[in-house]
């Protein structure tokens, strides 16, 4: 079974075509890196998977369930947005409790990241007193907290310090180990090179490449992901 299946997914915002006929099958149990320049359609694709954006055409399946307005499939997704914003006057613990509450009774719990970041002492303070880095950690921990089958991470390490980043990557590996799928959008290609199994390259709303990292390198002849991607961009519709 695929983690994500897209068939002919298109989306336009006004005159701007953001996704053009995207066909994609992201297999389960792997870490898939989503790359592409700004405005390539990465965010829109992620938001379509989450049901935040409704495609104009095409069909999306997530973990075998059709995305059709029924919100229940999202119980199996953990999402970490690019920027973390929480209600200023709630404490971290209250935010965690709120999301747990929304996910309903009996959700599984994985506090490895929460513990790894040592967030405990910060959880009782109001969000507005927390630093940007701490908020980012909270956001990451929140995505991992409920043992999701699919993790969607948008630029997860952008705000994290090297130590936190290391802990985060360990957890990433651990989660894959237990069979979860991970979709990871990032500009930091060296990071993807080290952790991703597959790469999806988006350009102008179209999939230009999808396959294992090694295959990408073979095809472009570069042993470095950054160069390989640059080559893809220059090659256009290679």
């Amino acid at each position: 079974m695929n983690a994500i299946t897209a068939r002919g997914v298109s989306k336009r915002f006004g005159r701007l075509e953001v996704l053009r006929q995207v066909d994609l099958e992201i297999p389960a149990g792997r870490i898939t890196g989503l790359v592409g320049p700004n405005a390539a359609g990465k965010s829109t694709f992620i938001k379509s998977v989450l049901g935040l954006v409704r495609p104009d055409a095409g069909e999306l399946q997530v973990l075998g369930q059709l995305v059709n307005g029924d919100e229940r499939y999202r119980a199996r997704i953990g999402y970490m947005p690019q920027a973390a914003h929480f209600p200023e006057n709630l404490s971290g613990a209250e935010v965690l409790a709120m999301i747990r509450d929304l996910r309903g009774p009996g959700v599984a719990s994985d506090t490895a990241l929460l513990d790894g970041f040592d967030l405990g002492p910060q959880l009782d303070k109001p969000i507005r007193t927390l630093s940007g880095g701490t908020r980012q950690k909270l956001s990451a921990a929140l995505a991992f907290l409920f043992r999701p089958d699919l993790l969607i991470l948008d630029e997860p390490t952008a705000g994290l310090d090297p130590i936190a980043s290391g802990i985060f990557k360990e957890q990433l590996a651990a989660v894959r180990e237990r069979g979860a799928s991970i979709l990871l959008a990032s500009h930091t290609l060296s990071e993807l090179e080290a952790h991703a199994d597959d790469i999806v390259f988006l350009l102008d709303g179209r999939i230009r490449f999808h396959g294992p990292v090694t295959q990408l390198m073979e095809r472009t002849g570069f042993a470095n992901l950054e160069r390989a991607v640059a080559a893809l961009m220059q090659g256009g519709a290679a």
């Binding site: 919100e71 499939y73 929304l102 996910r103 309903g104």
Partner: peptide, 16 residues
């Protein structure tokens, strides 16, 4: 101001 948090909440199993 709540825009981003609303997105996060909508990514949870919650109806609009």
């Amino acid at each position: 101001n709540a825009r981003e948090f609303i997105e996060l909440l909508l990514a949870q199993p919650v109806g609009r």
